[in-house]
Amino acid sequence: MKRILRRLIASILLVWAVFTLTFFLSRMAPGSPFQGERKLPPEIMQTLLAYYHLDRPLPVQYWEVLKKTASGDLGSSFKNPGVSVSEVIGRALPVSMVLGGTAFLESIVLALCLGLWMARSGEPAAGLLRTLSSVWVALPSFLLAALLIEVFSVKLGIFPPALWTGWSSVVLPSLAMSIAPAGYLARIFATSLSETFRSPFFQAARGRGISHWRLLSAHGILPSLNAVVSILGPISASFLTGSFVVESLFAIPGIGRVFVLSVMNRDYPMIMGTTLVYTGFLVGMTLVGDAIGEWIDPRVRSL
């Protein structure tokens, strides 16, 4: 209980640190969100800056924004006045959750199958699979996306190449996002499995003559899962960066695309909002990963 509390406090501090960093970095950036194609007269510029409190000293601004953010108000977009940041995020987040969630499940299933296959095959085949999996990991998501679109949309016409129009448009982007993390997870799972196979408790279980299936699942796979679960937090970071690229590629109105666009537009409140959502998500995933780890593997609890 005490440990959970400590973790929680550390997480809140982390979110605050990210807030502070993002705030000062984005204010340090040259150029202003109101610099457009047309030069604005200085009076209008002054009014705009005053309206958004951008003319105040930086520490005052920081305190104001921090107070507002802490009470859950992310402000409104600079680029599209009147549109609140929470509104945009509220619309984009479900899309990204569906996409990311699907990609996540796909990569876990793929990783478990591939890892099991790698760990159970003999030396020449295992080395070949390892080589293959590193090629797999090296495939950048944009190349994979291009390949998938070329084959499944342009040539075969099965799945739509872009936009968000129902379930068929989840397939290609989620695959593009899940392949590389799956390769990475599979390697870790395979290493952990082969360690388990050599361990005394596994040999003892085999010696007792329990059924093949039970031996593999309860004595082989379950104790090896912890290695996979413990990196779920860091791995979700790769889904996150995957989402920048893949959502931009497939023109999917998710949070990754919102983030990239708001960086291009220097839309401070939007950048802050999306960064905070990302950080919250990462922190949450790490906590969940650790909790699952404790739940499936009692060895972790005693540490």
């Binding site: 982390l14 640190a17 970095l25 984005s26 950036a29 970071a237 790769s238 996150l240 960086v263 990302y278």
Partner: peptide, 18 residues
Amino acid sequence: EVWYALPELLIATILMLV
């Protein structure tokens, strides 16, 4: 740890702003 919690590309993108 604070820095490590953020993905490389997220940090880099925000830095590219500056």
